[in-house]
């Protein structure tokens, strides 16, 4: 069975056709539980997310701030396995028909086997993978496996990326380009950096792929601000924080995820 990269491409093209940015949510698998995580992904879709990135928790998430670190710790302490991550993708995709990616660090995929991981992610109905610590120079093996199995390889670009690197990265990537809005780790910020618009402009000069902006976006106002210049808005820590805030009340957490997705979905349609 092939992966669903086309579904991802269609979702992003569909948002563009509606003259709006796409809303991409991030939620870690296994958090607060495996089943709770699956419901959270469904709730994000239900609230209006166009795409969901399912996090595969890692013991050493060096690109994540305290909120996602906390969620990863909880998921790993509960014993989340790659099989659970794949089940999250499978059930969320089966229930919604929407594109679902995996976001993780390179070592879990490398250890599992790039080919095996790509095959199983595709079989689960996944649309692609984001591996932010796998630089383009080291990515050939993974990209071959992903391409063969119909999966997108989404690369991250940063404000510090020089133009010639941007061209190299976007030439190797597929699905969309993840533009980091600022220099830093994941987490909510009071304002989205001014660097984001400039990075999107420089990235677009190198590629026709949609350019989606992540890091620091947490509310409708920021989503609208980013939607004004980007093809998609990526929100992670704010969703995780909603679940953390709900304590052990799973229903309240899911309602909060749905409500935030709805609020952000409105934001990406405003494009202030």
């Amino acid at each position: 069975m092939s992966g669903t990269i086309e579904l991802l491409q269609e979702a992003l093209a569909g948002a563009k056709a509606e003259n709006r940015a796409a809303l991409i949510a991030y939620l870690p698998a296994g958090f607060p539980t495996v089943d709770g995580g699956i419901e959270a992904v469904k709730a994000a879709f239900d609230g209006g997310a166009d795409v969901v990135e399912v996090g595969l928790p890692h013991s050493d998430p060096v690109l994540d701030g305290p909120v996602i670190q906390t969620a990863d710790d909880i998921a790993l302490k509960n014993g989340v396995k790659i099989a659970d991550v794949l089940r999250t993708v499978r059930e969320a995709h089966a229930a919604t028909g929407k594109p679902t990616l995996v976001m993780t660090y390179w070592n879990p995929v490398d250890r599992y086997g790039a080919e095996r991981f790509a095959a199983e992610l595709a079989a689960a109905g996944g649309a692609g993978c984001i591996l932010p610590d796998l630089p383009v120079e080291e990515s050939e093996g993974w990209r071959k496996a992903a391409e063969q199995h119909g999966l997108a390889t989404v690369f991250v670009v940063a404000p510090s990326s020089r133009d010639e690197r941007l061209a190299k990265i976007t030439a190797a990537g597929s699905g969309f380009v993840y533009a980091a809005s600022l220099m830093g780790v994941t987490g909510t910020r009071a304002s989205v950096g001014e660097q984001a618009g400039e990075l999107v402009r420089r990235t677009r000069a190198t590629t026709d792929l949609p350019v989606c902006v992540g890091l620091g976006v947490s509310n409708a106002e920021q989503a609208a601000e980013v939607a004004a210049f980007a093809d998609g808005v990526i929100v992670g820590s704010a969703f995780v924080q909603r679940i953390l805030d709900a304590g052990g009340d799973e229903a309240a957490g899911l309602a909060a995820v749905r409500a935030l997705a709805a609020e952000l979905a409105e934001g990406v349609r405003k494009r202030v």
Binding site: W106, P132, E137, E138, A158, P159, S160, R165, A180
Partner: peptide, 20 residues
């Protein structure tokens, strides 16, 4: 040139740190 000692080494870093 890529920083490998045989099969070991390399540069597995986020894009934000590549320039530095």
């Amino acid at each position: 040139a890529e920083g490998y000692f045989g099969a070991f080494g390399g540069k597995f870093i986020p894009e934000a740190l590549v320039a530095a």
